[in-house]
Design a protein around this nucleic acid. Structure first.
Lengths: 219, 219
DNA sequence: CTATAGAATGAATGTTCATTCAATAAACAC
DNA sequence: GTGTTTATTGAATGAACATTCATTCTATAG
């Protein structure tokens, strides 16, 4: 008989640094798909390519892993749009279009399932809910508030209650993200695409905020 | 010693007709609060005032109870707004304001937590997801589409992609409902009320759909 | 008042996991 | 090579929980 197992990555490799991230990623995907309670740690371990016992070396327990998932998945995606907002010189219309485009790209990443997960588990994990409120929700509101304020300051948008309008503007995008990871796979209307939704969203928002209704261009 | 237990409802009463509804209600509240997997049937039974075994007399198992919860909780609240839409004679602006008011009232009922529950469990219960898509989502979209079409037909709203805009218009309301049963209890901004949200929502939508931008009133 | 049907109970069962930890084997020092 | 450290394993443990069903009790008929 010739040699054995050349392509297999050799079980029991020691990679102390890479393990936590790999387990967090595996846990994130399964928690998002099935929810916290319905996810077995054994499945997480299998997907991460480790044994059942290893998560307990790096995390206190299942809840600790969950908290790590939320904390680690939240931070990366936050600064992207904020930089854009600060540097963009053109009209706020176009800025918003650009931001929606970036959002649409981000929405395809696996971590985009987090909002659904957090919403589903908020009651069972109050400290995670608080963390998410501070780090994501409040930050997101301020982000949209700044965009609206920018439009008002430049005379492009009419004056509105900026903080409330920020919440309303964020809502359809949050809903789209949650939707993508829940009911979207069971969509019955072939025309109900994310692109169509975002087009209509921009249409409504830009018309709804526009300052000087002097002309009425089509679409 | 005088008599015993006059106010107690006497354990082991036989009420074949009332039991299912009572267990469904108890299950609904707990499923919404904790999620399906994290809810113990023993807790459901206790809250419904029955023994652990009784749910299995009326439902096949825990999943069967879950499905009954969704099916029973969905139907009641649907026709309310549709009747209003058919009978209302005035401007579509006012009709929408009225509908949002009714929605706001419905949002306080316990069954308003269903969207969050369905979204959270959609992946684990595909047939429930399909049912909900048909009975609630599609119906809701058609409802909003009819409102928009009504406004366009009456010359009050500008022409838009009606089906897409219906989805966008429904999104903030769905989001508010989900929000109420997830992160709202951890709100950090005292000004972030549901009323303020709905005011801004109406403000945005009515300006965003308005047909003839001849004047620019405040508010 | 007694008998019968069937609604309701709750102790018992079996399974499904989260969690533990003694054993194993990479990696590295010498 | 040999010894030491420690990352990793996976069988074993025990608790939690869904589900069952023989028994108990209520309501109603006769």
């Amino acid at each position: 008989m010739p040699h054995e197992s050349p392509p297999q990555p050799a079980r029991r490799t020691r990679r102390k640094e890479a393990r936590p991230a790999e387990m967090i990623e595996a846990a994130r995907d399964l928690f998002i798909e099935r929810g916290f309670a319905a996810t077995k740690l054994e499945d997480v371990a299998r997907r991460a390519g480790v044994s059942v016992g290893l998560p307990y070396v790096y995390f206190e327990n299942k809840a600790g892993l969950f908290k790590a998932v939320v904390r680690e998945s939240v931070l990366p995606n936050i600064r992207l749009g904020e930089e854009l907002l600060d540097s963009y010189p053109g009209p706020t219309d176009d800025l918003l279009r650009l931001i929606v485009n970036r959002f649409w790209q981000m929405n395809r990443e696996p971590s985009a399932g987090l909002p659904k997960l957090v919403v589903a588990e908020a009651t069972n994990f109050p400290d995670i809910a608080r963390f998410y409120m501070e780090e994501v929700v409040m930050r997101g509101r301020r982000f949209f508030a700044r965009i609206i304020q920018r439009g008002i300051d430049r005379g492009e948008f009419r004056p509105v209650d900026v903080m409330q309008m920020a919440r309303v503007m964020a809502a359809p995008l949050s809903m789209l993200t949650i939707w993508t990871h829940s009911l979207a796979p069971h969509e019955l209307d072939p025309g109900a695409t994310a692109e169509g939704f975002l087009d209509a969203y921009l249409d409504l928002v830009l018309h709804g905020l526009r300052a000087a209704p002097k002309d009425t261009p089509d679409v």
